[in-house]
Design a protein around this nucleic acid. Sequence first.
DNA 1: AGAATTGTTGACCAGCCTGGTCAGTAAGGG
DNA 2: CCCTTACTGACCAGGCTGGTCAACAATTCT
Lengths: 215, 215
Amino acid sequence: MNDAFKSLDREKQNRILDAGFQEFAEKGYKQASTNQIAKAAGIGKGTLFYYFKNKQSLFHDLIEEAFNIADETYLSQINFEETDFFERLRESSELKMEVYRKQEHALTFMAQVFMHMNEYKLPERLLEKRKQAEEIWGSVLTKNIDFSKFRDDIPQEKTFNYIRWTIEGYRMELEQRIKLQGLSALSNVKLEPYYEEFYDHLDTLKMIYYKEEFR
Amino acid sequence: MNDAFKSLDREKQNRILDAGFQEFAEKGYKQASTNQIAKAAGIGKGTLFYYFKNKQSLFHDLIEEAFNIADETYLSQINFEETDFFERLRESSELKMEVYRKQEHALTFMAQVFMHMNEYKLPERLLEKRKQAEEIWGSVLTKNIDFSKFRDDIPQEKTFNYIRWTIEGYRMELEQRIKLQGLSALSNVKLEPYYEEFYDHLDTLKMIYYKEEFR
DNA sequence: AGAATTGTTGACCAGCCTGGTCAGTAAGGG
DNA sequence: CCCTTACTGACCAGGCTGGTCAACAATTCT
């Protein structure tokens, strides 16, 4: 990523970044095609290599950019004053949705990178960032949370995991549903009804896992 | 799949089938490589095409074979007399594990095919099978189940989904854990402690979602 | 025994796609 | 007018693709 790229207008930058995020997230480093990325971004192949010196450096730059995006629009916005678990969960989910709106494939790309991190020999600089990110991502739903609101006949760790897994399962099914009904991009989908559905699930989970007096 | 293949000894057949399952499950139809499959199965490339007439027919045969395996060692073994949800869940999980032991990648292959079914133009014969399979797979955790044991302050459908999602989340984390700790094949991993862990989760879920008198 | 059949292989094929280059074009600013 | 910068796609060598096939090996038949 050189100065030429950085001085592009934001829209074009984002188009290129997102094309890269999507291709690498879908196929992994080796199988990803720079031709595809250029085509999806709507630029010539030469131009891609005019902005990035080669495939590997493009990949590294994408990782760094994804970290930055996640940092700026997600992690740094989390309100760690909020001690209620479900409120924190709601806020963090909404922030995540913000990221999706800005850069639809940044987060799936990040997840892919996290999963296969060990296969890629990344420079020290990125490994360091990853370590930091891992910690803070893990703290989003734990740091300064009032876990005493959970019913105490179920081990706290289980409660925590069960809620995580349930939400994750719901998220995946929702993704599937949206993908099936319309081929439209996420940005074109009316999201309001899904929010209501999601809040409803949060309430139900509160019913299930909170002590009576906190429901 | 011709007579030559069918008259191979079981072990070699399974080696080839599983190599195919794995490759297609990992990369999808187009990206899958017949070279890789032959190499992974430990046979020459020519031999693979001596057994199967071409890539597409190999793919179709694998689908059919996967359906048969799932049918024989999983679906047909489910005891639909058992009306307790968690007992049914336990049994079906153990049966699934049987399938894994016999053909490690058959089920992930099937899942992949189900997901991307619409992209492949499959012959009528397979589409029909799929339709049937879909119905019966859906019925495994519902048909003849006594849902009245669930607490009735939470909608039954939610209860059902939440348990599914929780178990699925647990399964994925377990897979991750096993993959990390040892690179050994599933068949070499001591499974007993995991079973205990799994049963423990089932008990906890019973605590959460059953009426008091059925816990 | 030898002949005939069946099983198995990897070198080989044309063709596609790969990451990357670079001569050439276009545009803008001085 | 030149100089710089932005941008492109034809082009390259090389790797991998699905698939073939002549040659060889093993087994079975006569």
